[in-house]
Design a binder for these strands. Structure first.
Lengths: 211, 211
DNA sequence: GTAATTTATGGCAGTCCCTGACAAGTGACA
DNA sequence: TGTCACTTGTCAGGGACTGCCATAAATTAC
């Protein structure tokens, strides 16, 4: 775990600075009202450089969530192969929240701030869901690999789509109480997972159960 | 059911012409590669007019699916109030497919062509999911109205999100067999609905069941 | 320590999506 | 037929995003 070179550290620094500046501006004056020129100017960087860090304007708000998805996928890969798919997926999301609780305080605050902006901005919320769904392909691949089934089977698609739905509701903004700490977020997620658990028949997510 | 005036008929005609031209171009040279100028030129209409018919470039491909969602919502409103939420939603999607089967042949062909383009274009697929999710708000409102519960309750959110997931998988392109007729689409949808039916516990979508 | 190489950045020109405003053309209706 | 409402085209412009090239900084080689 050698600390990376100066160049790399600088890059991470500007990346975070861009995210922070963008989130502040989005909260202040709204997402569509702020231009990337403004964001770049706030960090004292050229607009061209902004697009070298983030492919699109919405990316700057969604990149943290994307990171979360990566850790989720990584966690999923470590789950025992004999674990039921939905159970494994549930543990994977939990790992994401756990990482938030254990991680750097600044990082956690930033993440929650991004969540707040995303939830209150339709365009960003849509983008967030888009990413979630795009990520399903990888989850399906991993699940069908674990089960040794064909990725084109209906079941893995169904399991993953259903899981995505649960995760989506679990991370949703719960009115009227703002979720401003990780704890409340974890509670909300757990109650949604529990609801799913008691709504589904045992063994529903494994092949061979039906008929 | 009086036929609308000339002005209205002309508008519908250009609308369909724009959709057809756009779908052809998208299939031919890809979505990103075609500009709205090209689409407008193909219909002999100014680019400005294109945006009077469709708010965005992706709208021209998604508007038919949006129409389908409208008929679904309308059907949902006619379902008996004592029907279980998920059952009512299932009947609502079925009504959409039925309408396709009974409707004009040109309309059906156009719809399937749009579906083909959407499924093979990541950007459009993403937009399609976005619309689906945006529509959830209305579905949630309707479901909680039927049940007499608070729209902020976890349950209606859960039911609708889960239903959206099922519908999404049901309309998915099933490799390697292309779904090029409505019949095959209906079959796929039914088998997904059946899978959901036997995966869920009876009464899961009504309040009071848990504990 | 200096030179050579790699990599990040800035500036610029240009494309495309999308919008507001105004003027001109076309159906609706008395 | 004449007035009114609505649709369309044109124009100007903003904002997102990209390719290209020159410059500056950090890394590596010597």
């Amino acid at each position: 775990m050698r600390r990376p070179g100066l160049r790399e550290r600088k890059k991470q620094k500007t990346r975070l600075a861009l995210i922070d500046a963008a989130l502040s501006l989005f909260l202040e004056q709204g997402y569509e009202a702020t231009t990337v020129d403004q964001i770049a100017a706030a960090v004292d960087v050229s607009p061209r450089t902004f697009f070298r860090y983030f492919a699109t304007k919405e990316d700057v708000a969604l990149s943290l969530a994307a990171d979360g998805q990566e850790t989720m996928l990584a966690e999923l890969a470590t789950r025992p192969a004999d674990e039921a798919p939905f159970t494994a997926l549930s543990h994977a999301v939990r790992a994401m929240v756990t990482m938030l609780q254990e991680g750097d305080l600044d990082d956690t605050a930033r993440f929650l701030r991004a969540r707040e902006v995303i939830d209150s901005t339709p365009a960003l919320f849509a983008g967030s869901v888009r990413r979630l769904v795009e990520n399903e392909r990888r989850l399906i691949a991993e699940i069908s690999r674990r089960q040794g089934t064909d990725p084109d089977d209906l079941l893995p698609h169904f399991v993953v789509a259903l899981f995505t739905a649960v995760a989506r509701v679990g991370f949703e903004l719960c009115e009227p109480a703002d979720i401003n700490d990780v704890k409340a977020l974890a509670v909300r997620l757990e109650s949604t997972l529990a609801l799913a658990e008691r709504s589904l028949r045992p063994g529903w997510d494994r092949p061979g159960h039906p008929v």
